[in-house]
Design a protein around this nucleic acid. Structure first.
Length: 352
DNA sequence: GACACGTGGCG
DNA sequence: TCGCCAAGTGT
Protein backbone atom coordinates (compact mmCIF):
# COMPACT_ATOMS: atom_id res chain seq x y z
CA UNK A 1 0.00 0.00 0.00
CA UNK A 2 1.29 3.47 -0.85
CA UNK A 3 1.60 6.25 1.75
CA UNK A 4 -1.36 8.58 1.49
CA UNK A 5 -0.41 11.94 -0.04
CA UNK A 6 0.04 14.57 2.64
CA UNK A 7 -0.32 18.35 2.34
CA UNK A 8 2.56 18.82 4.78
CA UNK A 9 4.98 17.02 2.44
CA UNK A 10 4.01 19.34 -0.39
CA UNK A 11 4.32 22.43 1.81
CA UNK A 12 7.82 21.31 2.79
CA UNK A 13 8.71 21.06 -0.89
CA UNK A 14 7.14 24.47 -1.54
CA UNK A 15 9.23 26.05 1.23
CA UNK A 16 12.34 25.08 -0.70
CA UNK A 17 11.15 25.38 -4.31
CA UNK A 18 8.48 28.13 -4.48
CA UNK A 19 8.93 30.19 -7.64
CA UNK A 20 9.56 33.90 -7.29
CA UNK A 21 6.61 35.53 -9.07
CA UNK A 22 5.79 39.25 -9.24
CA UNK A 23 2.41 38.81 -7.52
CA UNK A 24 3.53 36.24 -4.99
CA UNK A 25 4.22 36.65 -1.28
CA UNK A 26 6.57 33.71 -0.78
CA UNK A 27 6.41 31.26 2.10
CA UNK A 28 9.14 32.94 4.17
CA UNK A 29 7.58 36.40 3.86
CA UNK A 30 4.18 34.94 4.66
CA UNK A 31 5.64 33.26 7.75
CA UNK A 32 6.78 36.71 8.92
CA UNK A 33 3.18 37.86 8.71
CA UNK A 34 3.38 39.72 5.40
CA UNK A 35 -0.04 39.48 3.75
CA UNK A 36 -0.64 39.65 0.00
CA UNK A 37 -2.50 42.61 -1.54
CA UNK A 38 -5.90 41.23 -2.63
CA UNK A 39 -5.90 43.62 -5.60
CA UNK A 40 -2.68 42.14 -6.93
CA UNK A 41 -3.84 38.58 -6.28
CA UNK A 42 -7.14 39.22 -8.06
CA UNK A 43 -5.41 40.91 -11.01
CA UNK A 44 -2.88 38.10 -11.37
CA UNK A 45 -5.57 35.42 -11.16
CA UNK A 46 -7.65 37.05 -13.90
CA UNK A 47 -4.56 37.40 -16.12
CA UNK A 48 -3.51 33.79 -15.45
CA UNK A 49 -6.83 32.31 -16.59
CA UNK A 50 -5.87 30.00 -19.47
CA UNK A 51 -2.63 31.95 -19.84
CA UNK A 52 0.98 31.07 -19.08
CA UNK A 53 2.99 32.68 -16.30
CA UNK A 54 5.59 33.80 -18.86
CA UNK A 55 2.96 35.65 -20.91
CA UNK A 56 1.43 37.33 -17.85
CA UNK A 57 4.55 38.71 -16.10
CA UNK A 58 5.11 41.83 -18.22
CA UNK A 59 1.41 42.68 -18.37
CA UNK A 60 1.13 42.34 -14.60
CA UNK A 61 4.06 44.70 -14.01
CA UNK A 62 2.66 47.17 -16.52
CA UNK A 63 -0.84 47.14 -15.02
CA UNK A 64 0.31 47.45 -11.41
CA UNK A 65 2.72 50.29 -12.22
CA UNK A 66 0.08 52.18 -14.15
CA UNK A 67 -2.85 51.31 -11.87
CA UNK A 68 -1.46 50.48 -8.39
CA UNK A 69 -4.87 50.17 -6.74
CA UNK A 70 -8.32 48.92 -7.66
CA UNK A 71 -9.57 52.51 -7.36
CA UNK A 72 -7.02 53.69 -9.90
CA UNK A 73 -8.01 50.90 -12.27
CA UNK A 74 -11.70 51.62 -11.78
CA UNK A 75 -11.11 55.25 -12.78
CA UNK A 76 -9.25 54.36 -15.99
CA UNK A 77 -10.94 54.91 -19.37
CA UNK A 78 -12.12 51.69 -21.04
CA UNK A 79 -10.01 52.28 -24.15
CA UNK A 80 -6.79 52.59 -22.13
CA UNK A 81 -7.37 49.34 -20.28
CA UNK A 82 -8.33 47.43 -23.42
CA UNK A 83 -5.23 48.79 -25.20
CA UNK A 84 -3.04 47.76 -22.27
CA UNK A 85 -4.56 44.25 -22.36
CA UNK A 86 -4.01 43.94 -26.14
CA UNK A 87 -2.04 40.79 -26.97
CA UNK A 88 -3.01 38.87 -23.81
CA UNK A 89 -6.13 37.37 -25.36
CA UNK A 90 -9.56 36.41 -24.02
CA UNK A 91 -10.62 40.04 -24.03
CA UNK A 92 -13.83 39.40 -22.08
CA UNK A 93 -11.45 39.14 -19.13
CA UNK A 94 -10.40 42.77 -19.60
CA UNK A 95 -14.00 43.96 -19.92
CA UNK A 96 -14.96 42.02 -16.79
CA UNK A 97 -11.81 43.23 -15.04
CA UNK A 98 -12.99 46.81 -15.41
CA UNK A 99 -16.55 45.96 -14.42
CA UNK A 100 -15.27 44.17 -11.34
CA UNK A 101 -12.88 47.00 -10.41
CA UNK A 102 -15.75 49.48 -10.59
CA UNK A 103 -18.01 47.30 -8.47
CA UNK A 104 -15.30 46.96 -5.81
CA UNK A 105 -14.43 50.68 -5.98
CA UNK A 106 -18.01 51.90 -5.78
CA UNK A 107 -19.80 49.31 -3.67
CA UNK A 108 -17.18 48.25 -1.11
CA UNK A 109 -14.96 51.32 -0.98
CA UNK A 110 -12.09 49.77 -2.91
CA UNK A 111 -11.82 46.85 -0.48
CA UNK A 112 -11.96 43.35 -1.93
CA UNK A 113 -14.54 41.13 -0.26
CA UNK A 114 -13.01 38.25 1.69
CA UNK A 115 -16.18 36.19 1.52
CA UNK A 116 -16.01 33.45 -1.08
CA UNK A 117 -19.69 33.67 -2.01
CA UNK A 118 -19.45 37.44 -2.51
CA UNK A 119 -16.31 37.00 -4.61
CA UNK A 120 -18.27 34.58 -6.81
CA UNK A 121 -20.75 37.30 -7.72
CA UNK A 122 -18.02 39.55 -9.17
CA UNK A 123 -17.70 39.77 -12.97
CA UNK A 124 -15.01 37.43 -14.29
CA UNK A 125 -14.67 35.60 -10.98
CA UNK A 126 -15.77 31.97 -11.25
CA UNK A 127 -15.35 28.97 -8.95
CA UNK A 128 -11.61 28.69 -9.47
CA UNK A 129 -10.79 32.38 -9.06
CA UNK A 130 -13.08 32.85 -6.03
CA UNK A 131 -11.38 29.93 -4.29
CA UNK A 132 -7.91 31.11 -5.30
CA UNK A 133 -8.48 34.64 -4.00
CA UNK A 134 -9.95 33.28 -0.76
CA UNK A 135 -6.99 30.98 -0.22
CA UNK A 136 -4.10 33.09 -1.52
CA UNK A 137 -5.18 36.61 -0.55
CA UNK A 138 -7.04 35.82 2.67
CA UNK A 139 -5.55 32.48 3.76
CA UNK A 140 -8.97 30.86 3.97
CA UNK A 141 -9.05 27.11 3.32
CA UNK A 142 -10.97 26.70 0.05
CA UNK A 143 -10.65 23.90 -2.49
CA UNK A 144 -8.74 25.41 -5.40
CA UNK A 145 -9.11 23.42 -8.61
CA UNK A 146 -7.43 24.55 -11.81
CA UNK A 147 -5.89 22.57 -14.66
CA UNK A 148 -2.78 21.86 -12.58
CA UNK A 149 -4.77 20.48 -9.67
CA UNK A 150 -6.86 18.34 -12.02
CA UNK A 151 -3.72 16.86 -13.53
CA UNK A 152 -2.04 16.23 -10.17
CA UNK A 153 -5.18 14.60 -8.71
CA UNK A 154 -5.77 12.46 -11.81
CA UNK A 155 -2.23 11.13 -11.49
CA UNK A 156 -2.18 10.69 -7.72
CA UNK A 157 -5.30 8.51 -8.01
CA UNK A 158 -4.61 7.09 -11.48
CA UNK A 159 -8.03 8.38 -12.53
CA UNK A 160 -8.75 7.54 -16.18
CA UNK A 161 -12.20 9.09 -16.54
CA UNK A 162 -11.81 11.75 -19.25
CA UNK A 163 -12.32 15.45 -18.55
CA UNK A 164 -14.62 17.25 -18.19
CA UNK A 165 -16.67 14.34 -16.78
CA UNK A 166 -13.88 13.64 -14.27
CA UNK A 167 -14.05 17.13 -12.77
CA UNK A 168 -16.29 16.29 -9.76
CA UNK A 169 -14.17 13.24 -8.92
CA UNK A 170 -10.93 15.21 -9.11
CA UNK A 171 -12.47 18.02 -7.06
CA UNK A 172 -13.38 15.52 -4.33
CA UNK A 173 -9.80 14.23 -4.28
CA UNK A 174 -8.54 17.83 -4.04
CA UNK A 175 -10.96 18.56 -1.19
CA UNK A 176 -9.73 15.56 0.78
CA UNK A 177 -6.16 16.88 0.62
CA UNK A 178 -6.76 20.59 1.28
CA UNK A 179 -5.32 21.49 4.71
CA UNK A 180 -6.56 24.02 7.24
CA UNK A 181 -2.99 25.16 7.89
CA UNK A 182 -1.33 27.52 5.36
CA UNK A 183 -4.09 27.23 2.73
CA UNK A 184 -2.62 30.07 0.66
CA UNK A 185 0.79 28.45 0.43
CA UNK A 186 -0.79 25.06 -0.21
CA UNK A 187 -2.92 26.29 -3.12
CA UNK A 188 0.12 27.81 -4.77
CA UNK A 189 2.22 24.76 -3.97
CA UNK A 190 -0.06 22.37 -5.89
CA UNK A 191 -0.12 24.72 -8.84
CA UNK A 192 3.67 25.12 -8.75
CA UNK A 193 4.02 21.35 -8.59
CA UNK A 194 1.79 21.01 -11.65
CA UNK A 195 3.64 23.74 -13.51
CA UNK A 196 7.19 22.57 -12.81
CA UNK A 197 7.18 18.85 -11.86
CA UNK A 198 3.82 17.24 -12.64
CA UNK A 199 3.79 18.77 -16.14
CA UNK A 200 1.44 17.72 -18.96
CA UNK A 201 4.25 16.13 -20.99
CA UNK A 202 7.31 14.33 -19.63
CA UNK A 203 6.55 14.84 -15.93
CA UNK A 204 9.67 14.92 -13.72
CA UNK A 205 8.39 12.22 -11.36
CA UNK A 206 11.88 11.61 -9.99
CA UNK A 207 11.76 15.05 -8.35
CA UNK A 208 8.18 14.83 -7.07
CA UNK A 209 7.57 15.06 -3.32
CA UNK A 210 4.37 13.01 -3.78
CA UNK A 211 5.98 10.29 -5.89
CA UNK A 212 5.67 7.55 -3.29
CA UNK A 213 1.97 8.37 -2.92
CA UNK A 214 1.23 8.50 -6.65
CA UNK A 215 -0.82 5.69 -8.20
CA UNK A 216 0.05 6.78 -11.74
CA UNK A 217 3.76 6.69 -10.85
CA UNK A 218 3.32 3.17 -9.51
CA UNK A 219 1.44 2.13 -12.66
CA UNK A 220 3.57 4.06 -15.15
CA UNK A 221 0.57 6.00 -16.45
CA UNK A 222 1.41 9.55 -15.32
CA UNK A 223 2.25 10.94 -18.75
CA UNK A 224 -1.08 9.84 -20.26
CA UNK A 225 -3.22 11.49 -17.57
CA UNK A 226 -5.54 13.25 -17.33
CA UNK A 227 -7.56 11.78 -20.20
CA UNK A 228 -9.46 14.37 -22.21
CA UNK A 229 -12.39 14.29 -24.60
CA UNK A 230 -11.16 14.41 -28.22
CA UNK A 231 -10.93 17.86 -29.79
CA UNK A 232 -12.90 18.94 -32.82
CA UNK A 233 -10.94 20.21 -35.79
CA UNK A 234 -10.96 23.90 -36.57
CA UNK A 235 -12.70 25.18 -39.73
CA UNK A 236 -10.97 27.77 -41.93
CA UNK A 237 -12.59 31.20 -42.30
CA UNK A 238 -11.73 34.09 -44.59
CA UNK A 239 -12.27 37.83 -44.57
CA UNK A 240 -10.97 41.21 -45.70
CA UNK A 241 -9.50 43.94 -43.51
CA UNK A 242 -9.38 47.55 -44.74
CA UNK A 243 -6.43 49.65 -43.63
CA UNK A 244 -7.01 53.28 -44.58
CA UNK A 245 -4.31 55.84 -43.90
CA UNK A 246 -5.18 59.51 -44.15
CA UNK A 247 -2.58 61.80 -45.74
CA UNK A 248 -1.72 63.20 -42.29
CA UNK A 249 -0.82 59.70 -41.12
CA UNK A 250 -3.99 58.94 -39.11
CA UNK A 251 -5.38 55.38 -39.36
CA UNK A 252 -9.03 54.40 -39.74
CA UNK A 253 -10.01 52.13 -36.86
CA UNK A 254 -13.13 51.08 -35.05
CA UNK A 255 -13.91 49.82 -31.57
CA UNK A 256 -15.51 46.41 -31.89
CA UNK A 257 -18.82 45.76 -30.17
CA UNK A 258 -18.55 44.53 -26.57
CA UNK A 259 -20.02 41.11 -27.29
CA UNK A 260 -18.30 38.41 -29.28
CA UNK A 261 -14.84 37.87 -30.68
CA UNK A 262 -12.30 40.58 -29.76
CA UNK A 263 -15.16 42.45 -28.11
CA UNK A 264 -14.29 45.97 -26.99
CA UNK A 265 -10.97 45.95 -28.84
CA UNK A 266 -9.70 48.32 -31.50
CA UNK A 267 -9.60 46.82 -34.99
CA UNK A 268 -9.55 47.48 -38.71
CA UNK A 269 -12.96 47.75 -40.35
CA UNK A 270 -13.61 44.67 -42.42
CA UNK A 271 -15.93 42.00 -43.73
CA UNK A 272 -17.46 39.24 -41.69
CA UNK A 273 -15.23 36.18 -41.31
CA UNK A 274 -16.99 33.29 -43.04
CA UNK A 275 -16.19 29.63 -43.63
CA UNK A 276 -14.14 29.17 -46.81
CA UNK A 277 -16.52 26.36 -47.82
CA UNK A 278 -19.33 28.90 -48.25
CA UNK A 279 -19.66 32.10 -50.30
CA UNK A 280 -17.05 34.84 -49.89
CA UNK A 281 -18.12 37.57 -47.45
CA UNK A 282 -19.69 40.75 -48.89
CA UNK A 283 -17.15 43.49 -49.38
CA UNK A 284 -18.00 46.88 -47.96
CA UNK A 285 -15.03 49.26 -47.71
CA UNK A 286 -15.42 51.72 -44.82
CA UNK A 287 -14.49 54.70 -46.98
CA UNK A 288 -14.47 55.52 -50.70
CA UNK A 289 -10.93 55.09 -52.01
CA UNK A 290 -8.70 53.27 -54.48
CA UNK A 291 -8.16 50.06 -52.53
CA UNK A 292 -5.05 48.00 -53.27
CA UNK A 293 -4.72 44.38 -52.19
CA UNK A 294 -1.54 43.62 -50.27
CA UNK A 295 0.30 40.50 -51.42
CA UNK A 296 -0.11 37.44 -49.21
CA UNK A 297 -2.53 37.16 -46.32
CA UNK A 298 -2.50 37.52 -42.56
CA UNK A 299 -3.00 34.09 -41.00
CA UNK A 300 -4.19 33.66 -37.48
CA UNK A 301 -5.62 30.83 -35.39
CA UNK A 302 -8.31 31.50 -32.80
CA UNK A 303 -9.64 29.04 -30.26
CA UNK A 304 -12.15 27.51 -32.64
CA UNK A 305 -11.16 28.49 -36.21
CA UNK A 306 -8.28 29.39 -38.51
CA UNK A 307 -8.47 32.78 -40.23
CA UNK A 308 -7.03 33.87 -43.57
CA UNK A 309 -7.27 37.62 -43.76
CA UNK A 310 -6.83 39.51 -47.03
CA UNK A 311 -5.49 43.00 -46.39
CA UNK A 312 -6.41 46.02 -48.51
CA UNK A 313 -4.88 49.46 -48.12
CA UNK A 314 -5.71 52.95 -49.33
CA UNK A 315 -4.45 56.50 -48.92
CA UNK A 316 -7.29 58.97 -48.46
CA UNK A 317 -7.51 62.79 -48.44
CA UNK A 318 -8.21 64.86 -45.33
CA UNK A 319 -11.78 65.81 -46.24
CA UNK A 320 -13.07 62.31 -47.02
CA UNK A 321 -15.55 61.00 -44.39
CA UNK A 322 -15.66 57.29 -43.49
CA UNK A 323 -19.00 55.56 -43.04
CA UNK A 324 -17.42 53.18 -40.53
CA UNK A 325 -14.83 53.82 -37.84
CA UNK A 326 -12.82 56.90 -36.92
CA UNK A 327 -9.41 58.21 -37.89
CA UNK A 328 -6.97 58.05 -35.00
CA UNK A 329 -3.85 60.20 -35.19
CA UNK A 330 -0.52 58.51 -34.59
CA UNK A 331 0.29 59.80 -31.10
CA UNK A 332 -3.03 58.34 -29.93
CA UNK A 333 -2.51 55.00 -31.63
CA UNK A 334 0.15 52.33 -31.47
CA UNK A 335 -0.05 48.96 -33.25
CA UNK A 336 0.58 47.43 -29.83
CA UNK A 337 -2.93 48.61 -28.87
CA UNK A 338 -4.34 46.05 -31.31
CA UNK A 339 -5.26 42.42 -30.74
CA UNK A 340 -2.70 40.17 -32.40
CA UNK A 341 -4.73 39.34 -35.51
CA UNK A 342 -5.15 43.06 -36.26
CA UNK A 343 -1.47 43.70 -35.63
CA UNK A 344 -0.62 40.94 -38.09
CA UNK A 345 -2.74 42.70 -40.71
CA UNK A 346 -0.89 45.95 -39.95
CA UNK A 347 2.52 44.24 -40.20
CA UNK A 348 1.56 42.70 -43.54
CA UNK A 349 0.50 46.11 -44.88
CA UNK A 350 3.83 47.58 -43.72
CA UNK A 351 5.66 44.90 -45.69
CA UNK A 352 6.72 42.90 -42.62
C1' DG B 1 -22.88 19.59 -21.20
C1' DA B 2 -21.36 22.18 -25.05
C1' DC B 3 -19.54 25.97 -27.03
C1' DA B 4 -17.40 30.69 -27.58
C1' DC B 5 -13.56 32.97 -26.32
C1' DG B 6 -6.78 34.51 -27.82
C1' DT B 7 -2.27 33.90 -27.79
C1' DG B 8 2.51 32.16 -27.88
C1' DG B 9 5.55 28.33 -26.99
C1' DC B 10 6.84 23.73 -27.70
C1' DG B 11 7.72 19.12 -29.81
C1' DT C 1 3.31 22.83 -40.32
C1' DC C 2 0.24 21.52 -36.72
C1' DG C 3 -1.90 20.05 -32.58
C1' DC C 4 -1.52 20.56 -27.73
C1' DC C 5 -1.36 23.21 -23.83
C1' DA C 6 -1.69 27.30 -20.07
C1' DA C 7 -3.65 29.54 -12.45
C1' DG C 8 -11.41 29.43 -16.61
C1' DT C 9 -15.69 32.15 -17.24
C1' DG C 10 -20.03 33.24 -19.33
C1' DT C 11 -23.90 31.78 -21.89
Amino acid sequence: MRDPADAADLLQWYDRHARDLPWRVGPSARAKGIAPDPYRIWLSEIMLQQTTVAAVKDYFRLFTERWPTVDALAAAPDAEVMAAWAGLGYYARARNLLKCARVVAEETGGVFPADHDVLLTLPGVGPYTAAAISAIAFDVPRVVVDGNVERVMARLHDEHTPLPAAKPILTAYAAALTPNARPGDYAQAVMDLGATICTPKRPACGLCPWRTSCAAWANGTAAELPKKAPKKRKPVRQGVAYLARRVDGAWLLETRPDKGLLGGMLGWPGTDWLDVEGPAPDEDPPIRAEWKTVGGEARHTFTHFHLRLVVKTALVPMDRKPHRGDFIALPDFSPSDLPTVMRKAFDLAQGR
